[in-house]
Design a protein around this nucleic acid. Structure first.
Lengths: 173, 173, 173, 173
DNA sequence: TATGAATGAGTATTCATTCAT
DNA sequence: GATGAATGAATACTCATTCAT
């Protein structure tokens, strides 16, 4: 991948995440990436192709992060790691996650199956720990994960830290 | 308010909620509302004014819904009503809520103080019920409220019904 | 039809006829017609819609011209009028005809049925005059008509005048 | 001439003939010819240079075909061969001819002198055969040649075959 | 109040062409 | 001879907004 191509991807990620896909023009991306507008289309065919490339990248990262949990064998640790997950997002990855959440609202980009492995693992963990309704517990925790992430991305990690302890304690993990 | 003005508002709400503010053109709104494009500007000055009008309306409705909880004096019932809240959204109001959630991501439209009264009430309820960390419990429930709402708006109320019983039981309300 | 709309049509006809559809940009048409580029699309939706409007107009004129021949009852006069046809094209209509011939090469715009009524009439005329193969004679004369037209449009009517007498004499009409 | 250069020429001929010079992009030619876009410019300097090369080639072929008629000494045979000319176009040469006719409409590429030798020969032939107005007869036949060619290129040779017999008989050749 | 013609700046995308390798 | 990255200007088309009626 050439430098310029990477430039485009980075700038586009930042802009899409913070201003929204539709609100960002290809000309703005080009200007900010220091390339000609035409180059965007040489590399990604259309604006949407650029988004697709970024999303594909984001999915790869998501999977990496998830795998740490999936391969955990201790149920308590599974839950703990899940709660800790959003707090360990690297600041340089914020934009990836922001975009992720923004796109959840776009029919076309919402793929619940992406979360399936995590959900299954949580399901298993709550079963192991003899919770009454492991399925619903898994669903609940997954949703909590979502909202914490949203909070962190909006207000920063500091604001949410004590909330993390609260959750760890509540789940006794 | 004239028929045509209301037409514009209704159509704009629907389109903004489902396709996003930036993705909807004033010409599309006008066409779908059966009015001339100029009329939108006569009534709302600019596109943003149209959004503002809708948001103001949405806020009024939100407050109405909240007041049912705010004036409740039984702490258990406060929690119960909060959990039940998203399940009782009228289908005809879905678009209002969808827009609400979409706009949460737009810096400019995110106003956390809108939720303050509900949060305070929950805080009070959890205190009354001797929860250890009422503040965090309130925060947690508020966030759960968010994600349930999102789920309902996306997948319909039916899919989430058993989750409601699960929560009511979990909170013993 | 507003003045500006007519302006657009006139300018577009001239440019399409002389430079070719693909070689003329909408911005050039707008500039030359003294209107904003956007107006072209307000009125004709897309560039092709503009061409369609012009072609429809041209077809109407074509039919008018043909009707003079179709309603002729004297077979000799039918042939004479056909031969004279291209020589009587008004100079102000040249562009219409030029465009017509240019488009004959575009699959999509070549509609042989447009000429059917004339062909049938010629067929009838040659039959009446006891030509051996009236069908082929009709075809031949129609093709001659074509090439004369082309010649006139390219080199002007003067150059072709003696050719007209030659044909009239040849067909003894 | 390298393989790749020939590839480019062949593809360009086909595309120019069928879609028109302006409607075909160099990138399309490159893709279809399986070469890099840059190579087109290395070989032909600019897009127009590519067209020029094709046209030059076409002219060479045209002259070859004409020479069969020019060197004929029997006047009847001259006319016969002229009528037969378009019916003997090789299918693999259709694109050359199509392009030829399309370009007749482009001021810049219309060179009537290309046909001069044929016209002169026909003139001579009709004189020999004591036609009243050999000049006009030559002009007429040349134009018929044109329209037959157009018909063949559009509808195939089969459709026009009986028309050929008709003409041969009409001219008694 | 309401329309519809009109605009100017902007949008995504395409194009012919250059150039270092 | 050949590639592929890169460009800048152009292209068809859209948009929010204005204004005379």
């Amino acid at each position: 991948m050439t430098d310029k191509k990477e430039n485009i991807l980075n700038v586009a990620l930042e802009l899409f995440a913070n201003e929204g896909y539709n609100a960002v023009s290809t000309s703005k991306i080009a200007r900010q990436a220091g390339v000609s507008e035409g180059l965007i289309f040489r590399h990604f065919e259309h604006k949407k192709g650029l988004l697709d490339a970024i999303v594909a990248d984001a999915e790869r990262r998501l999977n990496e992060v998830f795998s740490h949990i999936i391969f955990e064998t201790n149920p308590k640790k599974v839950i703990r790691k899940t709660i800790e997950l959003p707090f360990s997002i690297d600041k340089s990855d914020y934009d990836y996650w922001k975009l992720q959440f923004k796109l959840k609202w776009e029919q076309e980009y919402y793929k619940p199956e992406k979360m399936k492995p995590l959900r299954d693992k949580l399901n298993w963990a709550f079963s192991e720990l003899d919770f009454e309704s492991p399925e619903n517990e898994a669903k609940l925790l997954e949703q909590i994960l979502d909202t914490i992430s949203i909070g962190i991305l909006r207000d920063g990690v500091q604001q949410q830290k004590q909330f993390k302890s609260f959750l760890l304690k509540k789940y006794e993990v």
